[in-house]
């Protein structure tokens, strides 16, 4: 069965598009990532124009992250206070990132910077998460602890000079759900950093925000997932509205079909995530991020089959 899309102006297979939505929703519910870094290229690959793919993907993330946030909120996994601070930073960073892209485009090397940023960020984040989680799993196995909790991953091992510096920062705030105390300033700055990178890379930033929350803010993994989804929900609401209003590139039918899969996928992911430990989740996400990195690297090194492409997208 096929559906013709009113904005993308192409016909797509219903099972294929719902399946893609299910896959990305599953990742969203499991790891708290929006999945834009994965879904947008897949949509382009099946013939959706890049600008429509990116904008419609953003709208489907609104639905999927609503589903995921609600599920995690019911489980008590959303640190709303932390989410709002990160959101403020992300909003500021997004504006800064868009301006930075304008400057780079004027200089004529924006695409080079975007691609290199993509590969470096994905590679570094993926590798770090992979090896860190692998070590944690090995240690856990060696000590043969009977019960593991995500909080063990969040416990600071040793108070370094850097940690002392962080504790000395002003506006120290207690984040009850995360079980941590941080300077509000630090949280906003980290949110800004992710916002800048997300704007440069043209993605929601979930896969960057999750490691920031885990490793820098030392939040428990299950709270990270819920809070990340909460933050992504609001970011994507803003992006979807702007894309619909300014560029007319949101394809409602495409987003709804993706949503059919992704909202269910997000629920399945959330339930599945409860059966996995924090380190297992991290290592799975790290493998997906590394897989995407390898794919991008191959695309960068091998001559593409077509040397022309439509404008827009990442």
């Amino acid at each position: 069965m096929y559906f013709y899309l009113p904005i993308a102006l192409t016909s797509i297979s219903l099972p294929l598009i719902v399946g893609l939505g299910l896959l990305v929703g599953l990742l969203s519910g499991l790891f708290g990532v929006g999945g834009g870094f994965l879904l947008t290229p897949l949509l382009i690959m099946i013939g959706i124009p890049p600008t429509v793919a990116a904008a419609s993907d953003s709208l489907q993330i609104v639905g999927a992250s609503t589903s995921g946030t609600f599920a995690h909120w019911k489980l008590g996994n959303v640190d709303v206070k932390m989410g709002i601070y990160l959101l403020i930073g992300g909003f500021v960073g997004g504006i800064g990132g868009v301006q930075l892209i304008k400057v780079l485009r004027a200089m004529g090397n924006a695409d080079f910077v975007i691609k290199i940023t993509y590969v470096l960020m994905l590679g570094i984040v993926g590798s770090y998460m992979f090896f860190e989680s692998l070590n944690a799993l090995k240690k856990a196995k060696q000590s043969k602890e009977a019960v593991h909790t995500d909080e063990t991953a969040a416990k600071p091992k040793k108070e370094s000079g850097f940690v002392k510096f962080l504790k000395a920062l002003p506006l120290q705030t207690r984040f009850e759900k995360s079980g941590a105390t941080h300077s509000a300033l630090l949280v906003i700055v980290l949110g800004t950093f992710v916002g800048v990178l997300a704007a440069i890379m043209g993605v929601g930033g979930g896969f960057l925000m999750v490691p920031v929350m885990v490793y820098l803010l030392r939040m428990p993994m299950h709270v990270v997932v819920g809070t990340s989804l909460f933050q992504i929900l609001f970011t994507c609401i803003e992006v979807s509205f702007l894309q619909a209003y300014v560029n007319h590139t949101v394809d409602f039918i495409l987003a709804v079909l993706l949503l059919v899969g992704s909202t269910f996928g997000a629920q399945i992911g959330t339930k599945l995530g409860r059966k996995l430990h924090g380190d297992q989740l991290k290592i799975l996400l790290a493998m997906i991020v590394l897989g995407v990195t390898v794919k991008i690297l191959v695309d960068l090194l091998v001559q593409p089959s077509l040397l022309l492409s439509l404008k827009g997208g990442h």
Binding site: V62, T66, F264
Partner: peptide, 9 residues
């Protein structure tokens, strides 16, 4: 989109 997310939840 938000309503769809809630309904599925």
């Amino acid at each position: 989109a938000i309503a769809a997310g809630f309904i599925v939840s």
